[in-house]
Structures are given as structure tokens and as C-alpha cells.
Design a protein around this nucleic acid. Structure first.
Lengths: 244, 244
DNA sequence: CCGAAACGAGAGCACCGCTCTTGCATTACT
DNA sequence: AGTAATGCAAGAGCGGTGCTCTCGTTTCGG
């Protein structure tokens, strides 16, 4: 399942000539299919995305699309990778390492929210209900880390500057956290409790946006942007960052 | 849309006789259809649930099902109401008003998690990605409140007992919260900031369970139950409850 | 230059939600 | 009690889906 069976193998022997005409055409068509799928995802959501309709939009037979994506799931996987990449880049580009940790934190949170409200179906694709029977390929788990790692870097910088002062509260038992999670950033080791606070912050960022996008805050919050900023500050303060 | 068009109107004039044979048969078959749909939801998720397959399971023509549920959306709505009711009852039944607030809080959180892991597809149905094109009918918004209201009651009781002491942190601006949210429980008025903390706790409960169920904690937490308990305590402490 | 590989199109299979018609059983009304 | 209205189950059918297979064509590499 999810075999990418028609795609070029990673370790195929490369010919002397860089690209044959066929390879160029293939790469172009693959990109066009992905673009059409993204277009349909944007306006109708993942549920309404069909291989046949993107084939129609591109004026080709539906069976021809299977030369480029072995299944609908594979097409969705490509869109998932795209979404993870974009939200990761949004976070990274919003971060200004020179600024104060609190400012950086708020800027990154806002950037992630902005991307999410502008790409709600893409957000749902990566943070909503998993597609039934769908198992995330290995490719996704790497790119999925870019956004939370941006948050971790801010905390690490604050920590190195002696500006990370988590307020008192229940202490997370170390055995609750995976060992490899404790070496999240090379050279900046967090305590298990700090790591737990980071995980919770990441979970909060995704969760509060989901609540907003999925309508759970409909009659609850009067000003979503204001409440989001408050949430960002609350979570940042819980991690030990200073604001204002 | 979602008109329940074949169902008996609420305010129809009731005949002298309580139930005709036809009405009994109708009620029974409706329940059977719902049960079959729930069965299929349990094992395959909402995406794979089809009216035709429940019809097959019940040995009837697919068109006959439409006499009882006007559409697939309507069948899903019934399942959503069922799920909201069950998670609300799980929370309510786990609450022991005589116990200390911290104990009550933890018990309710655990009950909600237990129900969710035992009914992951039902959880996804109410807290996951909304069905495309689907708008929650009015019926759902009332029953959806039972679970969060259980949390609010614990906070209200603690507050009345003078045992609600929220730790310092960013204060939520009052205009971020809807006015009707501030009179959440009659007679127990929370401050806007307390209300915000309650909203965040509710969001956390749903969000952390979603992370666990959807695999986002896969290589992150080593002991999900332990981390969940820590999360419950953290969120309870942030609300101002005392633990241990 | 020629065989192998890649490709596009079409037909086809099994499924889906939903509608409409038809014939029968039950109910309600006179 | 007879009749008209209603409820109901079944079947055919429409347009859609993912996916497979075949077949003729094009392109590439040895």
C-alpha cells in the first residue's frame, strides 16, 4: 500500500544526460496533477477530492493519472507533505531569532494560525481525522517536525540566555516522555518537565486552531484573534517565557 | 437539508391509542438501522460507513433505508448525537460531587479518555475533521455541552468552597469571551479569566486525546496514560484546583 | 534499428448516494 | 364496513467514485 510504484526509484542509476524529454514531461505532469489536486482541496476539502475530477480538469483519462500517482492515498500523501512543509516554512519564516523570546513566540504562533485559517482544508488534512485505513508514510514524519521544532528553538534560545523560567506546577514524570524526545535539539537538552511543557504548547497551538476552524468556539469566544493571542501568551508563560 | 423529513413531527397531534403496530415497527427498525450503523462505525470509521452496507446487513433494499433516514448526513447526525450523549454521560457518571475537586477533575478526565480510546471513531466523528458540507444541526449543540459542563461544575463547586485559586499568568481580556459564556452555570458566575481557563482546559482535554488517538504522540510520549494524568493535573492546576 | 519500457485512452467492475416508480399492506375516515 | 389515503419495501436507474486491464502508440536506450 502507498507504494509510489510508478515513481522513479531513489537509487536508480542516473544517465549521463541530465533529463530526457520524457522525464521532463513526467515531472511537469506530476506537478500539474498535484497543483490541480491542491486547487480542488482548497475549495472542497479532502473528502470531495477525486482522482477522476483532477483528470477531468487536466483533460486526461482518469486511468492515465494512475501512471503518476498509484492511488488516491498517494496523492493525498503528496498533499500532506506539501501542507506540513508549508506550515513549517510559515513558522520558520515568521521567527526572528534576534528578537525577544516572547515576541518570537507570538509571531510564530500567529503565523501558524494565519496559515491555518487561509488553508483550512490543508490544516484538516494534517491535523484532523486521519484518513481511514491510511498510514502516514515515513516521509511525512520528518517534515512534520519543522513547525514544533521552531517552537523548541525559541525555548532553547531563551534557556541559553537564562530567560526560561517555567512557573511552578505539577512536574511531569520523566518516564512519560520518550528518550529520543529529550535530545530534541542537539546541544540544547531540556529537562523532561520542560519537554512536557513544550509538547503541551505544541498540542495547544494545534488544538486551539482546530477548535476555531471546526466551529467549537462558535458561541464561546467573541474575538478569536484576541483569544488566540491570549492562548499563545498563556502557553508561552507556562513554558517559562516572558511577555511584554 | 437534514430535514428528518420522514420522521414523525414533534408536535403532531397524538392519537388516543399510544402506539400503532406500524409505529412500533418503525421505531424498532429505526433503532436497528442506527445500531447497524454504529456497528459499522465502530470497526471501519465514518468514512467507510455507507447506507447501502447497513441496508445489506439488515437484509433490506438500500432505498428502504431512506424511509427512516433521509440521507447519509442524517444518519451521521444521529450517530453524532449518540456520541456526544455517551461522552457526556461518561463524564457525568465519573463525577463524585462529594470528593475533593482535584479527585473529581482527574476522574472525569480519565473517564473521557477511556471512552475516547474505546470509541475512537466516535470520538473522531465529534471532534475530528467536520464532514465536508455538513452543518451541525441544532440538536447537537445542546448535547455537546454535557461534557464541558461537567468540568465547569467541578470548578464552580471548588470556587464556592473557596478552593479555586488560579495561579498568576496572562489575564484574558474580557472582550475575547462571549457574554453568554460568562453565565455558563446559573448562580455560579465565573470571571472572564476563569472562563478562559475553563475553555482552555476543555480544549486541552479534547486536544490531548486527539493527539494520542491520531498518532501525533507516537514517538513523543512513552507512557500515554501517565502523560495524560500529568496533563490533567497541569490543566487543573492552571484552573486553580489543588491536587494531592 | 529494434526491443523494451513508458504512456494515453477506453472499457469495465464493484461500489457509492440518491431518486423515482410500482405494487402491496396498513391505517384512517366516512 | 367499505374506501380513500398513507406507509412501506423493492427494483431499476442516474451519475459519481477508485481502481484494473487491455490495446495501440510513442519514446528511449543498447
Amino acid at each position: 500500500m502507498l507504494s509510489f510504484r510508478y515513481t522513479v526509484p531513489m537509487n536508480a542509476p542516473r544517465p549521463a544526460r541530465v533529463k530526457t524529454a520524457r522525464e521532463r514531461a513526467r515531472a511537469e505532469l506530476t506537478a500539474e496533477i498535484l497543483a490541480a489536486a491542491r486547487r480542488q482541496l482548497r475549495e472542497s476539502g479532502a473528502g470531495d477530492l477525486s482522482l477522476r475530477s483532477v483528470a477531468r480538469e487536466l483533460g486526461m483519462a482518469s486511468s492515465a493519472v494512475y501512471r503518476y500517482f498509484a492511488s488516491r492515498d498517494e496523492l493525498l500523501t503528496a498533499l500532506i507533505v506539501q501542507a506540513y512543509t508549508e506550515i513549517g516554512e510559515a513558522a520558520e519564516h515568521a521567527d526572528r531569532p534576534g528578537n525577544a523570546p516572547g515576541e518570537r513566540w507570538l509571531a510564530v504562533w500567529r503565523a501558524v494560525r494565519d496559515w491555518s485559517v487561509a488553508n483550512r482544508h490543508e490544516y484538516a488534512l494534517i491535523f484532523g481525522t486521519p484518513i481511514p485505513g491510511y498510514i502516514a508514510p515515513h516521509i511525512t514524519i520528518e517534515v512534520a517536525g519543522r513547525m514544533p521544532l521552531t517552537l523548541a528553538r525559541i525555548a532553547a534560545d531563551a534557556r541559553r540566555a537564562g530567560a526560561l523560567a517555567p512557573p511552578p506546577g505539577p512536574v511531569c514524570p520523566p518516564e512519560a516522555i520518550t528518550p529520543e524526545m529529550l535530545v530534541l535539539l542537539e546541544g540544547d537538552e531540556f529537562t523532561p518537565d520542560e519537554t512536557a511543557r513544550l509538547i503541551l504548547a505544541w498540542n495547544r497551538l494545534v488544538g486551539i486552531i482546530g477548535y476555531e476552524l471546526h466551529g467549537h468556539l462558535a458561541n464561546v469566544t467573541a474575538d478569536d484573534a484576541l483569544f488566540f493571542d491570549h492562548t499563545a501568551r498563556t502557553e508561552g508563560a507556562h513554558l517559562g517565557l516572558a511577555f511584554d
